[in-house]
Design a protein around this nucleic acid. Structure first.
Lengths: 136, 136
DNA sequence: TCCTACGATCGACTGAGTCCAAGTCAAGAA
DNA sequence: TTCTTGACTTGGACTCAGTCGATCGTAGGA
């Protein structure tokens, strides 16, 4: 993740302790935290960090393409730092746990022209649902 | 949609004017209204209908399997009456318009066992994103 | 027609996220 | 090193979607 900090600095991002902490919290595989969870973890290291800053920083990371926003249901969005390795999500209908998964086929190829209604289709996102071992 | 009303009555649903109006609003192809839009349209015919009733009725229709809940982004959920014909969604990143689409392949088959992490996977939902002709 | 359990209503409440005015500070300039 | 400045952060008020619960109303069976 330190290369994330490097990339951000290279893009002219002003490096502040708040931004550094948020970026560090979003480190690892299969990390899918809500904004509130990010805030809670960031606050363990930097107690005075505000919710607004966490939202701002997450929003910037998303628009820079460094983090993905995942809206699995009507509940809080989750943030996925694994943005540079295309993948989809497997969500547990019981507890909401998310795993990154890699299907063998690209669903974009499966949408015939006559089903595109003149849209310029750029992306296909698959959400698999089911029960995790604990909830089954 | 009148067969929907029949089906509901057959299931012992108590028929009230509010429920009838909500069911009638959710009629047609490519209908993807938010709860607030459903409430607004229902209120044109039945001005005193309350938001809570619309939420209750939508929730019941969803749990009866007559209507699908679609959470395309972090915004309000949308309700899709086309629940008896399996399909996926194409969403305009500009204006949020939704179309029902039918890919040629079932993505469930594309998730190998070693990518299921012990989950019992029951459903795969594809969201295609792009720009509609108006927004392009 | 009457009765009553189920459904509708209203308003207060919650949770997620946004906005804004004022204060702070990172980093380039001197 | 110190100064300067505009970008960043803060806290709190606000919005929007949705839920809850007490109370009222009525569909439909007797």
């Amino acid at each position: 993740m330190s290369d994330l900090l490097e990339r951000l600095r290279g893009r002219g991002w002003r490096m502040t302790s708040q931004r550094r902490v948020v970026a560090e919290v979003l480190d690892g595989e299969h990390v899918h935290l809500t904004a509130d969870e990010v805030h809670a973890r960031a606050a363990r290291r930097l107690p005075e960090i505000s919710r607004a800053t966490v939202y701002n920083t997450l929003g910037e990371l998303v628009s820079l393409g460094e983090v993905l926003e995942v809206a699995t249901d009507g509940r809080a969005k989750r943030y996925d730092p694994n943005a540079h390795h295309p993948h989809h999500h497997l969500v547990c209908s019981g507890c909401g746990t998310i795993r990154d998964v890699h299907p063998t086929n690209d669903p974009l190829a499966d949408l015939p022209v006559e089903e595109r209604f003149g849209f310029t289709v750029s992306e296909a996102e698959v959400t698999y649902r089911g029960l995790c071992p604990d909830c089954a």
